[in-house]
């Protein structure tokens, strides 16, 4: 293959995949619940995506990137399960919360809502898999049901029932939180 092909490919990849960096990073944050693990996973995801870009046939880039990210995250889950079970504990994730908000602080961030956003993120984080993943892909990454099915490799019917479960669980947590803060 001529050398220039690699660069054309790299250029096409840059244009097609980089615009979704925030989306991929968002999903990684929710799946891994850790900022630095999420960074590593996203970087690995883009490396793999570039490597397999030749075999990419469309139509949608976002679900394709998410599918690769899931593979990377599954490897990370396996690593955690072997190394240190405590990583998955909720207190650890809760400790992270103030840091996220500092990182996120930007002029556009509504100050009034930032606390609510933190509380809601925590509730989403606490959802069990595979419900959390389906919920984040739909509600935060704005994928259609069909795209979610592509990204997670499950039938659309499964996506629909997972989403209904996820929302029911989130609503229950939400209601409990409101009761608690009264």
């Amino acid at each position: 293959m001529p050398v220039s092909d690699d660069f054309q490919k790299a250029q096409r990849f840059r244009e097609a995949a980089l615009p979704y960096l925030d989306d991929v990073y968002t999903l990684a944050r929710y799946l891994l619940r850790d900022a630095s693990d999420a960074e590593d996973a996203v970087q690995e995801c883009y490396l793999r995506a570039l490597k397999h870009f030749d075999s990419y046939r469309g139509p949608a880039m976002k679900p394709w990137l998410f599918a690769i990210l899931r593979n990377v995250c599954n490897a990370e889950y396996a690593r955690r399960a072997h190394s240190h079970a405590a990583i998955e504990d909720t207190p650890g994730a809760a400790d992270q919360t103030p840091m996220w908000q500092e990182n996120e602080a930007s002029p556009e961030t509504e100050v009034l809502r930032s606390r609510d956003a933190g509380a809601i993120r925590k509730m989403i984080d606490a959802l069990a898999e595979p419900f959390k993943e389906t919920f984040v892909l739909r509600e935060i990454n704005n994928l259609s049901y069909r795209e979610i099915a592509e990204a997670v490799g499950a039938p659309v019917g499964t996506v629909m029932s997972r989403l209904a479960r996820a929302r029911a669980m989130l609503r229950a947590a939400w209601t409990a939180e409101e009761e608690h803060s009264k």
Binding site: Y25, V42, L50, E139
Partner: peptide, 18 residues
């Protein structure tokens, strides 16, 4: 605001790898 923004350093690292 439930989305996260990728840190600038991550974006730079990925761009450098392409």
């Amino acid at each position: 605001k439930l989305r996260y923004s990728a840190p600038a350093s991550l974006r730079t690292r990925i761009e450098a790898s392409i």
